[in-house]
Simulated assay, not measured.
Amino acid sequence: MATNIVTTTWKENMQFESDNPSGLNLTMDAGEESGGEGKGYRPKALMLASLAGCSGLDVISLLKKMHAEVADFKIDITAELTEEHPKFYKKVKVDYHFSDTELQPKKIQKAVNLSVTKYCGVMEMFRQFAEVDIEIHLHKIEL
């Protein structure tokens, strides 16, 4: 069984620093409206970045294996929080944007579907507490 260990240390005021199994550190801080100085990532936004990163890594890996690489790829996530505390994401929209001169829609759809339904553990975690909607956008680059 794989285990991850992350240590998070209070630095000052509302600022924390977390290590990572990769050896890299990141800083988290509350916004000024919450007593912080805005000098770091917001924890809930990091969750969305983790979702995009997890699925994005899957998709790029799968597209390479399918010989369907793209010139540009980005993931936009829009998430709606509950009104009551503890506030958590109740609705999440994941928009996958692919750009290339020669897009391969069937392979792109397959790669996204495999990430969403089979490989991305962060996506599965989100589905435990939120309604998650997925949309794929294909942008043909004209030369």
Results as ranks from 00 to 15, higher is better:
Thr78Tyr: 07
Thr101Tyr: 10
His139Gly: 03
Ala49Gly: 14
Glu12Asn: 14
Trp10Asn: 00
Ile5Cys: 05
Phe126Arg: 04
Val59Trp: 05
Val70Gly: 00
Asp72Ile: 03
Val59His: 04
Met125Thr: 12
Val92Gly: 01
Ile141Trp: 00
Asp72Ser: 11
Val59Met: 09
Asn4Thr: 10
His139Ile: 08
Asp58Thr: 03
Val70Tyr: 00
Phe129Leu: 07
Pro86Met: 03
Thr9Arg: 06
Glu83Ile: 02
Met1Gly: 10
Val112Glu: 05
Met66Ala: 09
Ala79Asn: 02
Met125Phe: 08
Arg42Phe: 08
Trp10Phe: 01
Lys74Leu: 08
Leu62Gln: 01
Asn4Met: 14
Gly53Asp: 00
Ser115Lys: 03
Asp58Trp: 02
Glu33Trp: 09
Ala52Arg: 03
Lys65Trp: 00
Lys11Ile: 09
Leu46Trp: 05
Ile141His: 00
Gln15Cys: 15
Gln128His: 11
Asn13Ile: 12
Val116His: 09
Ser22Pro: 03
Asp29Gly: 05
Ser115Ile: 02
Ile5Trp: 02
Lys11Arg: 08
Leu81Ser: 14
Met47Leu: 15
Lys106Trp: 09
Ala52Glu: 04
Glu83Met: 02
Tyr96Gln: 08
Asp95Phe: 12
Leu114Gln: 07
Thr82Val: 05
Thr27Val: 15
Val132Pro: 02
Met66Ser: 06
Val70Gln: 02
Glu69Gly: 11
Gln15Ala: 15
Phe126Glu: 02
Gly23Met: 07
Val92Ser: 01
Glu32Gly: 06
Lys44Trp: 05
Asp76Pro: 04
Gly38Asn: 15
Met1Leu: 07
His137Thr: 06
Asp95Cys: 12
Trp10Ser: 01
Lys110Pro: 07
Ile5Arg: 12
